[in-house]
Amino acid sequence: MKKDSAKDIKIAFFDVDGTLVDMEKKVITPAMIETLKHLKENGIILCMATGRGPYLVPSFPGIDFDVFLSYNASYCYTKDEVIFSNPIPKEDVKAIVENASEIHRPVFLAGVEGGGANGCDKDLADYFAIAKSKVNILDNFDFEKLMDKKVYQMMVGCYKEEYADILRDVDGARITAWWTRAADITPANGNKGVGVRKILDYYHLDKENAIAFGDGTNDIEMLEAVGTGVAMGNATDDVKAVADAICGHVAEDGIYHYCKEQGLI
């Protein structure tokens, strides 16, 4: 992005883990807080785009995000209204639970206000620990009762070679992974890129008015959906390959330095 185009930026999308927050330290830095405050003061809409659900979205001191793309954009909302709701088809939820059980993998079903799992293993527990959370294991995993509620995302501990087994005979869901030992399962027709377009339409903004920062494979569509997609220095190679720019590592306040250099703050 050229400095003289910084004035065209009206909205900024941020992934959380590995982007806003170092996954090792698990806390946001003062420089990143300063960055978000200055962007807000400069009239830029702040959007958090995360695989986390609304009940696990982090809050940062002195920062009010304007809009949220939760569950990898399956559920997008502001504090006042829901912008986009895209649950996983119920028949696919059932198939995934059954497929995962066959390979001895417990699954967490997530709705707007939380959810529950039919068990837990180390991979799933460690995955939730990244968000400083614990797996809610339901003593009575009543599948039919759970199906009364919309499932926006499913989480399962697994490796890439297990993906095909988990998604056997499933048409309406896909795996969106940003960690090698677990995966988010989201609607097949949704991703962060779809969410970005819904949000841009909501605010009557063009692609060129948007910038996004991300580090994981589930951020690729988001970076492609904005005018300026920025990969973190710690991003995976496939993310860097589609990015318009690469900033510094999250542990070195890469976003702060990029925004300073580009005149955004």
Rank of each mutant, 00 (worst) to 15 (best):
P89Y: 03
A117T: 01
R105E: 10
T35W: 05
K3Q: 15
R181F: 14
R181P: 01
D215M: 02
G43H: 07
D171Y: 12
N136R: 11
L69K: 07
D8A: 15
V16W: 00
V27P: 08
T217C: 13
H104V: 09
W179F: 15
K149M: 01
A110D: 12
E91A: 06
V242D: 06
G172M: 06
G195V: 02
G233P: 07
A6K: 07
I211C: 05
K90F: 08
K240S: 12
K94V: 15
E91K: 10
L124S: 05
V67D: 10
V27Q: 11
V239K: 04
A210P: 09
K94T: 13
N234R: 03
M1Q: 12
C158T: 00
T29A: 05
A117P: 06
Y152V: 04
G157A: 03
N118F: 10
C76K: 02
F108R: 08
L109T: 01
I130T: 03
D15Q: 06
A245R: 11
N140E: 15
I44P: 04
P54N: 03
T236H: 14
K7M: 12
K134I: 12
A251S: 13
G172C: 08
P87I: 04
Q153S: 06
R52P: 04
S70E: 01
K207Q: 14
P54E: 00
D80N: 01
A241N: 10
D121I: 03
G229A: 10
F128C: 07
D148C: 08
E208M: 14
V194L: 02
D165A: 14
P106D: 06
L205A: 13
D139Y: 12
I211E: 02
G233S: 06
D123M: 13
E98L: 12
K192Q: 10
I199F: 07
T236V: 13
F143M: 15
I45V: 13
F108K: 08
K2W: 14
C247M: 07
A173K: 09
